[in-house]
């Protein structure tokens, strides 16, 4: 029943709307054409003047301001970055030169130290050698002196012994000759 109703209602409605359209489009009624065009011109003109004189310059200045601010900020950031890079480079250079300096100082001081040590060593060596030589000389001197003393002592002993035993003094030179003779023989024997 309801389906039947729909089928019945649809064409009637369509017919009605078609009839209405046929009855005339209000758009084609020229009664208010002049009024519509007139008010359109007035209202659109006022909107146009408002927009072109006030709103567009405002929006434009706002957008330009933002863009310039962004550009300025970007430029600032760029210069800051460049500065930071420069500083980093300076720091690296400084570190590099400091390292080189430290190496130089280290090698210099170690060389100096080595030279010092060598010089001192040489000096001490020389001193030791001198000391040794002196000591050797002294020993030599002492040796020879003691030999001479031995001669004198043995001569005296001999003369005393001769005096004690024989009760007379002997010729000093003969005694000396005898002692040296004996000593020489002794030395030869010993050697």
């Amino acid at each position: 029943m309801k389906k039947f109703l729909i089928v019945l209602v649809f064409p009637t409605l369509l017919g009605e709307s078609l009839f209405a359209a046929e009855a005339g489009m209000p758009q084609l009624n020229p009664k208010y054409w002049a009024s519509q065009a007139f008010w359109l011109i007035i209202i659109f003109l006022s909107i146009y003047i408002l927009i072109s004189r006030i709103f567009i310059p405002k929006i434009k200045s706002n957008i330009d301001m933002r863009e310039s601010k962004i550009r300025k900020d970007l430029e600032e950031a760029k210069t800051f970055r460049e500065e930071a890079e420069k500083k980093l480079k300076a720091y690296k250079d400084l570190m590099e030169s400091a390292k080189v300096d430290a190496k130089k100082i280290l090698s210099e001081s170690s060389q100096k130290l080595n030279e010092d040590m060598q010089a001192k060593k040489n000096k001490i060596q020389k001193e030791i050698e001198q000391e040794t030589r002196n000591a050797e000389k002294e020993i030599q001197k002492f040796k020879s002196e003691s030999l001479n003393k031995v001669n004198t002592i043995s001569e005296e002993i001999v003369s005393t012994l001769v005096k004690d035993i024989f009760g007379e003094d002997l010729n000093r030179s003969s005694i000396k000759a005898t002692v040296s003779q004996v000593l020489k023989e002794y030395k030869v024997k010993k050697i």
Partner: peptide, 18 residues
């Protein structure tokens, strides 16, 4: 006839909203 109509009214409303 340049009377103010409902068309003019809605033009004005648009203009005011803009």
């Amino acid at each position: 006839d340049l009377s103010f109509t409902n068309s003019s009214l809605f033009m004005t409303i648009s203009a005011v909203l803009i």
